[in-house]
Amino acid sequence: MEAQLAQMRVDYRRDELDVGDLADTWYEQLARWLDDATADGVVEPNAMVLATTSDDCIPSTRTVLCKDVDERGVVFYTNYTSAKSHDLRTMRRAAATFPWYAQQRQVSLRGEVERVSNEETRAYWATRPRGSQLGAWASAQSAYVRDRDALDAALAVTERRFPETAEVPVPPHWGGWRIVPDRVEFWQGRANRMHDRLRFEQNAVDRSWQVRRLAP
């Protein structure tokens, strides 16, 4: 396997990216590439790898689903008692990467985090399938559980609590986080590993944005 891994490589030749190809803002460009990935049939094109850091400086990554993109930032939803939420409350910063391998593209961003409003959380919650709503009540995310039977039992209790005719409210321990980026990089694979890397960077003083090219 080690020899096979050493030989695994793809020569990227699908597309190119220059400053003139970019939208005026990072969020419009991200939306454009999300649309491209969706049109190409990418499975869960809104999946992003979220990186957080604990208060003892230990990093963690996991995949979450982006549920909103606008000028304010990138939003995902989760349990507020989870390990990731603990990291976010403590460190107040996060990073995320959208990996679109089929398009030979990725977008990486970083910035401060904030909780989304209760109104936004309720609006998104109303769009979730009932099963996902029940799961949010049943699962103490990131907590240790005895076995799978314990999880199934917790879901069964929740189903009895909210019968088919009952509305499932938003749990008090559940809601959205928004990453408010100060840096967003768009990466397009190119031949000979001479990839295109264009980064939107925000000026810390006047909050204006500029675009810079980086060496691959």
Rank of each mutant, 00 (worst) to 15 (best):
residue 168 V to P: 07
residue 149 D to A: 12
residue 165 T to E: 13
residue 149 D to C: 05
residue 148 R to C: 07
residue 161 R to V: 14
residue 131 G to M: 11
residue 144 Y to Q: 15
residue 126 A to Y: 09
residue 151 L to N: 05
residue 152 D to G: 02
residue 135 G to W: 02
residue 135 G to E: 08
residue 135 G to T: 04
residue 153 A to E: 07
residue 139 S to W: 00
residue 134 L to I: 02
residue 146 R to Q: 14
residue 130 R to V: 10
residue 161 R to W: 14
residue 128 R to P: 03
residue 132 S to R: 04
residue 133 Q to L: 08
residue 134 L to G: 02
residue 138 A to P: 03
residue 169 P to F: 01
residue 157 V to W: 13
residue 148 R to T: 06
residue 136 A to E: 01
residue 154 A to R: 06
residue 126 A to K: 10
residue 127 T to M: 07
residue 148 R to V: 09
residue 131 G to T: 15
residue 137 W to H: 02
residue 142 S to D: 06
residue 160 R to V: 12
residue 128 R to F: 03
residue 133 Q to R: 07
residue 170 V to K: 00
residue 169 P to M: 08
residue 146 R to Y: 12
residue 164 E to I: 15
residue 157 V to G: 13
residue 169 P to D: 01
residue 152 D to C: 06
residue 132 S to T: 09
residue 160 R to G: 14
residue 132 S to W: 10
residue 137 W to E: 00
residue 135 G to M: 05
residue 157 V to R: 08
residue 130 R to A: 13
residue 124 Y to N: 09
residue 148 R to P: 06
residue 129 P to G: 12
residue 136 A to V: 01
residue 155 L to I: 04
residue 156 A to C: 10
residue 166 A to M: 12
residue 144 Y to C: 10
residue 142 S to Y: 05
residue 146 R to V: 13
residue 171 P to Q: 01
residue 137 W to T: 00
residue 138 A to F: 02
residue 134 L to N: 03
residue 139 S to M: 01
residue 139 S to N: 00
residue 140 A to K: 15
residue 145 V to C: 08
residue 155 L to F: 04
residue 138 A to I: 04
residue 137 W to M: 00
residue 135 G to S: 11
residue 126 A to N: 10
residue 138 A to C: 05
residue 171 P to F: 00
residue 159 E to Q: 15
residue 144 Y to I: 15
residue 126 A to T: 09
residue 148 R to S: 03
residue 146 R to K: 11
residue 133 Q to D: 08
residue 147 D to P: 02
residue 159 E to T: 11
residue 163 P to S: 11
residue 121 T to R: 05
residue 162 F to I: 06
residue 156 A to V: 12
residue 159 E to D: 11
residue 172 P to Q: 11
residue 166 A to T: 12
residue 147 D to V: 08
residue 133 Q to G: 08
residue 128 R to T: 03
residue 135 G to N: 09
residue 148 R to F: 05
residue 150 A to Y: 09
residue 121 T to Y: 02
residue 152 D to A: 05
residue 131 G to Y: 11
residue 170 V to C: 06
residue 122 R to M: 10
residue 141 Q to N: 04
residue 160 R to N: 14
residue 149 D to S: 12
residue 122 R to H: 12
residue 138 A to M: 08
residue 174 W to D: 00
residue 137 W to L: 00
residue 155 L to S: 01
residue 150 A to G: 05
residue 152 D to V: 05
residue 134 L to Y: 01
residue 156 A to W: 06
residue 122 R to V: 06
residue 141 Q to I: 03
residue 158 T to L: 10
residue 170 V to E: 07
residue 130 R to Y: 08
residue 128 R to I: 02
residue 169 P to I: 02
residue 152 D to Y: 02
residue 161 R to D: 13
residue 138 A to G: 05
residue 166 A to E: 13
residue 173 H to Y: 08
residue 170 V to P: 01
residue 131 G to N: 13
